[in-house]
Amino acid sequence: MTKPSWFNRLSILFGFAFLYLPIVVLVIYSFNGSKLVTVWGGFSTQWYATVLSNPSIIEGAKVSFLVAAVSATAATILGTLAAVVMVRLRRFRGRALLNGMLLAPMVMPEVVMAVSMLLMFVTLGIDRGPLTITLAHTTFTLCFATVVLQSRLVELDPSLEEAARDLGCPPPKAFVSVALPNMVPAIVSAWLLSFTLSLDDLVISSFTTGPGASTLPMKIYSQIKFGVTPEINAISTIILGIVVLGLVAAQLVSRRSEQKASVA
């Protein structure tokens, strides 16, 4: 495997064409002046204007961002606790169950989690709305955040903390002052991952919301159900732009912290 062969190059080319062609089409047609997909009606930004002046979309975006920000923060905090518990406290009663509960949501069909959480909220008598969506999102993104944090914590040399304790830090302080700063890149990516997953979710939001609170994906979904409109192309392009910007920024941050680490 010294050099990629023509077969390797071809598979890469084909794979990426498949992954990106639909997205490229979407972006291009968001600037189409015509309402028809097959007709190019000249470059236009009119659909963006329509989107940005649509109060229902803006309202949905507000709900989505609020829910995503709160649930990502909660999931990251809980995920850090869970990662510490799973990595540092090797033996305690009920470890297997906790491990199972942390991993299951990763593969559990969304519908299953959605149904079960809805029934829980109804049983507890909690009014459904942004709060219940946030609780549900925190729960299902928690496992992804934990996986990210756990894999970083496993790599982290425990002798760092031991050194801090040897120098007089009590264990909790040793963790906060030595391990935590070294986990910042993982914490950032855990938060971003949770945030995006929450922002993207349709199924769990639909089940756990109440009347009046609709997230952006719910609004988009109901629009799509009516049919393909260029407006959705424009919303999609805006979301894609935000995601790409966020990813590039995250990449730069983590690369710089890596460089810093390698210099030090």
Binding site: P22, I23, L26, L199, D200, L202, P217, I220, Y221, I224, V228, I232, I235, S236, I239, L240, V243, V244
Partner: peptide
């Protein structure tokens, strides 16, 4: 990026 968008 959003799954809904990719399906769309």
């Amino acid at each position: 990026s959003s799954m809904l968008i990719r399906v769309y």
